[in-house]
C-alpha cells in the first residue's frame, strides 16, 4: 500500500483514468447494446475493435504518416485523426455487421440455444484475430506521433495533454449522440422495443432483423472510434490488442449494469479510475487484479451492476 503515491499523483491519475475510462466506455457500449437486445455476450466485439486500430493506422499511412515521421502540424494532425475516426468507425461497423450476418443470424433462424451463440462468437473471434495475425506477421505496429505532447493546460497539478482532451471530448460526444439516438429517434425506439420484448416488438411491426443489424453497426462505430484513440494513447497496435481491452470493456459493461447504455459509460469511467488508483496504491502489476476484485465485490452487493440491467425497461 502506497497511499503517499496515490495522494501525490492523484490529479494525474484521475486524468489518465478518465481517458482510459472513456475508451473502455466506448467499447463497453458495443457489448451492452448487443447484450441488451439479444441477451448475448458478443465475444467477437474485441476483434471489431482490433480491426478498427488497424484501419486507423492504414488511414494515417495514406496521409504519409508512420511511426518514423515527424509530428505534423496541428491542423494536419486533427484532420488525420478525423479521417481515421471515420474510416475506423465504418470499417469496425462493417466487421460487426459481417459477424452478425455470418455467425449469429443463421443461429437465430434455427433458434439455437444461447451457448451455441457463445461458441460461434468465439469462433468468429478466432478467425478475425488469426487472420489479422497472419496478415501482420504478428508483430506490433507503431502509431505516428500526431498531437503535441506538451500539456494543453495545467491547473494545480492537473496537467492535461491534447490527446487526453480530444479522447474525452470525442467520447462524450459519441456517448451523448448515442443516448440521443436511442432515446429520441424512431430507430432508437425500435431498439428499445426489441430489447424490452423481441416477440411483441416484431408483432407490432418492428423489423427485428434490421434493429439487430443496427445495434451491431452502432456498437462497431463506437469501437472504431475507441480504436483510434487507443492507437494514439498507447502508440502501437497488434493483432491481439483487442483481447485484454475487450475483457476490460466487458467488465465495465457488467459493472455499470449490462444492457444499460448509461451504465456502460459509468462503468467504463469507474473502471479506468479504479485501475489507475490501484496501480498507484499496489503497483502497476496489480492493476488488473484490483479491477477484477472490484468487479466481483460489486456484483456481490449489486448483482445486476450499478445502474441495473435492461436497455428498454429502465429507459436506457
Amino acid at each position: 500500500m502506497n497511499i503517499g503515491e496515490l495522494l501525490r499523483s492523484f490529479p494525474e491519475l484521475t486524468v489518465t483514468g478518465v481517458t482510459q475510462g472513456a475508451i473502455y466506455a466506448l467499447v463497453a457500449l458495443g457489448y451492452t447494446l448487443v447484450y441488451g437486445v439479444l441477451r448475448l455476450i458478443n465475444f467477437a466485439h474485441s476483434e471489431v475493435f482490433m480491426v478498427g486500430t488497424f484501419a486507423a493506422l492504414f488511414t494515417w499511412g495514406l496521409f504519409g504518416l508512420d511511426s518514423n515521421t515527424e509530428r505534423p502540424s496541428i491542423g494536419v494532425a486533427l484532420l488525420a485523426i478525423l479521417a481515421a475516426i471515420v474510416v475506423a468507425a465504418v470499417t469496425s461497423a462493417a466487421v460487426a455487421l459481417l459477424i452478425e450476418v455470418t455467425a449469429y443470424r443463421p443461429l437465430r433462424h434455427r433458434n439455437a440455444p444461447p451457448l451455441a451463440f457463445l461458441i460461434t462468437a468465439i469462433g468468429a473471434s478466432f478467425v478475425l484475430m488469426e487472420v489479422a495475425g497472419s496478415l501482420t506477421v504478428r508483430r506490433p505496429f507503431g502509431v505516428p506521433a500526431l498531437l503535441p505532447s506538451k500539456p494543453l493546460f495545467d491547473i494545480g497539478g492537473w496537467a492535461v495533454t491534447p490527446t487526453q482532451v480530444t479522447t474525452v471530448v470525442v467520447a462524450i460526444a459519441m456517448l451523448v449522440g448515442l443516448d440521443y439516438f436511442v432515446q429520441k429517434t424512431r430507430a432508437g425506439r425500435g431498439i428499445r422495443a426489441v430489447a424490452q420484448d423481441p416477440n411483441t416488438a416484431a408483432l407490432m411491426g418492428v423489423n427485428k432483423s434490421r434493429v439487430i443489424a443496427l445495434v451491431f453497426i452502432l456498437g462497431g462505430l463506437m469501437a472504431g472510434v475507441a480504436a483510434v484513440f487507443n492507437d494514439i494513447k498507447t502508440g502501437s497496435t497488434k493483432f491481439n490488442v483487442g483481447f485484454l481491452l475487450g475483457l476490460k470493456a466487458f467488465s465495465a459493461a457488467v459493472l455499470g449494469g449490462i444492457g444499460n447504455l448509461r451504465g456502460a459509460a459509468l462503468g467504463g469511467l469507474l473502471l479506468g479510475l479504479i485501475e489507475n488508483y490501484a496501480s498507484a496504491l499496489f503497483g502497476s502489476n496489480w492493476r488488473d487484479f484490483v479491477a477484477f476484485v472490484a468487479l466481483i465485490a460489486l456484483l456481490m452487493f449489486r448483482p445486476t451492476g450499478l445502474l441495473g440491467e435492461s436497455l428498454g425497461r429502465a429507459r436506457a
Binding site: T102, P106, F117, T120, G123, A124, F126, V127, E130
Partner: peptide, 9 residues
C-alpha cells in the same frame, strides 16, 4: 474458428 461456426450453425 470457421469449423466452430459451421458446426454450431
Amino acid at each position: 474458428g470457421i469449423v466452430l461456426i459451421v458446426v454450431m450453425i
